[in-house]
Design a protein around this nucleic acid. Structure first.
Lengths: 233, 233
DNA sequence: TCGCAGATTTAGGCACGCGTAATTCCGGGA
DNA sequence: TCCCGGAATTACGCGTGCCTAAATCTGCGA
């Protein structure tokens, strides 16, 4: 036996913490202990303890009772994990026939085990993709990540055209459902109605003939879209 | 986050122990604490402690001061790890352009992270190979493994033809060296000399013109061959 | 300004898996 | 049979990362 514990040099837990902190940070707001605890499904005091260690390692900045922010090296490590996760998901989907609803768990384990070398080879084999199967941008090797200007379908104005660009990889049921409607990343459709008080959104999907579907508010809120200003097909 | 700690349900350490015990067991002889400690590069008392836990989990049978043997479920789990390791090595070599001397460490990490599903898909993509790139037989999904009748090159009679069938994946230097000689699994050659007192073995490699090479005893002992009884090219 | 709810941290504990030091066991030679 | 060296185990301790219970802080509404 001779392999490193973990390809990145950090423990599996550390990698998980960095990734969720990155994801919860949005645009720089401090991340609460409780949010981390919920995302990782562990108790809040456990997070307090771990945050202390992360802070001593210089990966996060911790203001007691206020929250944590990633430091430069914390963010770099987090983006590395995000890159790994998304490349693995893309690879499994494109090269090994996985469906987009079943890659998340597998990637969640593999992201801790793959080396930079392997990620590089996977990316190469895929032609250095910019997005994963759910539309999420893949950070580059040197930690650049594209910022997307997206709108939840629940907020796209009625009457405009929209294109599905991004959906979370976390909910297989949701992914299977929207796939069953013919909705995947890149599909354009018309928003033809929305009911008030978190009512459903009605969209018209392309096809012969076009098909109308009603999507619940919660679902519509999970579908990040480009709004294509302008007229209707 | 929602993935299991480890695809098999056992901890990474447990998986490592089971694999080395399997490999050290040969044909059923009890495995000594010290042998495990050396293989895993950890201290002997640590092994004693772990063996106790493995034994309580029903994975090994431990006779104090005598050694351990895998139980049925221990052997099944070990063979699963061996299958994972060898399929991953084969996949990396065949599909991602790795050389045979660089796959071991990567596989050592990945074998703990891949699911049965993924191993199945990799095996499928490879056409269900029976051997890994180093010639080691790949256990089937249900835990069958082929027994090979092989002879170390250091014991193949002078004058016979032999074919390289198996070499350990542990030593990248050795693998690179023999590859540089044109020796890989499946290559046949003639054994034309061997010096006494652990002296070198001389082989004649096919080619135009044939090439003779002298291999040190230790190296020759690491090359497991089929002896092709009979005459010489 | 006070008090309360909720978030956070501290206190104390546990399992895992590793280490070193000290002790015990086993087998072979005298 | 005794003794001795090497193997194994026991005793004790450490860091990681999780837990629950108890204390503390923060901000908001009365």
């Amino acid at each position: 036996m001779s392999a490193e514990a973990n390809a990145s040099g950090y423990s599996r837990s550390t990698e998980d913490y960095l990734k969720v902190i990155y994801e919860l940070e949005g645009r720089g707001a401090p991340v609460q202990t409780r949010a981390i605890a919920e995302a990782l499904e562990i108790a809040a005091p456990s997070v307090s303890g771990m945050v202390k260690r992360l802070s001593e390692s210089g990966l996060v900045e911790h203001v007691p009772y206020r929250g944590v922010r990633l430091t430069g090296s914390g963010r770099r490590a987090a983006l590395k994990m995000v890159r790994r996760h998304r490349i693995v998901e893309t690879y499994l989907t494109q090269k090994l026939g996985y469906d987009w609803d079943s890659v998340h768990d597998e990637a969640e384990r593999l992201e801790h085990a793959v080396s930079d070398e392997l990620i590089g080879r996977m990316a190469m084999a895929l032609g250095n993709p910019r997005y994963d199967p759910h539309g999420a941008p893949i950070p580059t090797k040197d930690g650049q990540i594209e910022e997307q200007e997206l709108l939840p379908l629940s907020e796209v104005p009625v009457g405009s055209m929209a294109e599905l660009r991004l959906v979370s990889d976390r909910d297989p049921e949701l992914l299977r459902y929207i796939a069953s409607l013919g909705l995947k990343v890149g599909v354009a459709f018309e928003v033809i109605g929305r009911q008030p008080f978190k009512g459903p959104v009605t969209i018209r999907l392309p096809g012969k003939p076009p098909r109308d579907e009603n999507l619940g508010h919660e679902l519509a809120a999970a579908l990040q879209c480009w709004e294509r200003e302008g007229e209707v097909g």
